[in-house]
Design a protein around this nucleic acid. Structure first.
Lengths: 170, 170
DNA sequence: GTCCGTTAGTCGGACGTCCTACTTTGAGGA
DNA sequence: TCCTCAAAGTAGGACGTCCGACTAACGGAC
């Protein structure tokens, strides 16, 4: 008898896991498991592409998000707390990101006049320039080339928005 | 004139960012940006729910995935390399996860007979029991309650699979 | 039979995230 | 007024991820 064709062909570990779920009688949760696992993996892929596009500029996606928040703010400055609440991350993550941005002279820290507990983070001219350059790179290399059709991209956005809304994200 | 109604109403930071993208003439990439950002946030939400369900059992999702891979394998053991390739993570991440699992006596390391470079990771009875208990917890508390309809869950899975496939994930 | 490129795994370090604990300041109640 | 509780931010530590460098072993070519 002939040897197997040795097909190292398309084998999706997540689809394999889904089959195992059904086989073990967990069919009810199989699609949910596969969706969550795909979400984890898709995040990993997207993050890698984003970080790769940003690496030449010397910033991470986390720090880029802080820069964009400042860029879109009226005064170009925001208190730490607002940054954390918009990005939905822990206060210590904001401290961490702002530390690195400040060390790179992309933002400055200054005490707030109204509330002496608060710290105002402001964009420097270098920070503004870098935010704009980074956005151009991301639009060109990642956001405009997701590998999905325009309809699929909107569908993904719609379902993820439903998921976030259901989780009380906004 | 009367004060504003003070509506702290549904305000989605991602939708706000999408509007900014359009306003700045980056409309081409706006949906992609919103989809990627939503992906990041949805991942964060899903991971938090998963970790919360697993915390009482003393394992993380990363380590749970290793346990399930072993549980589904014929012999209950796999070389490190196979684990990394199935989970699509860096070899050092596998070393890290297996270190912690071994310290908790959930898996054992043993040299491979065929290839003396390779290390075989095997499930212990405690590891097997914990994997089953963790799966029950995840199915009940997370995978079965995503906050999406069955159709939306399948749609999400389908689009994410397309995205992964396009990125060469399998 | 030996040499050299490849592969398996580990080590040390960087980064981002979270958590707990802590200090300082603000704000409302007795 | 004083007192207590809440809020803003930081410090230290755990965890997971990646990268670069390194050791040990495999395997084909000459």
């Amino acid at each position: 008898m002939p040897g197997e064709p040795r097909r190292a062909l398309p084998f999706d570990p997540i689809e394999a896991a889904r089959a195992q779920w059904v086989e073990h009688g967990w069919g009810e949760a199989a699609d949910g498991m596969a969706a969550v696992t795909s979400l984890m993996r898709a995040h990993q892929i997207a993050l890698a592409r984003v970080e790769s596009a940003l690496r030449p500029l010397g910033v991470s996606f986390a720090r880029y998000e802080v820069l964009m928040l400042l860029l879109f703010s009226r005064r170009g400055s925001l208190p730490m707390r607002t940054i954390g609440s918009r990005l939905q991350v822990h206060p210590t993550s904001v401290t961490n990101a702002v530390d690195r941005l400040a060390r790179a002279a992309l933002v400055t820290r200054s005490p707030s006049a109204e509330d002496r507990r608060a710290v105002l983070v402001a964009l420097t001219p270098e920070g503004r320039a870098l935010a704009e350059k980074a956005t151009a790179a991301l639009n060109d290399e990642v956001f405009g080339r997701l590998g999905l059709s325009a309809g699929e991209t909107r569908t993904l956005l719609r379902v993820l928005t439903t998921l976030r809304s259901g989780a009380g994200d906004f």
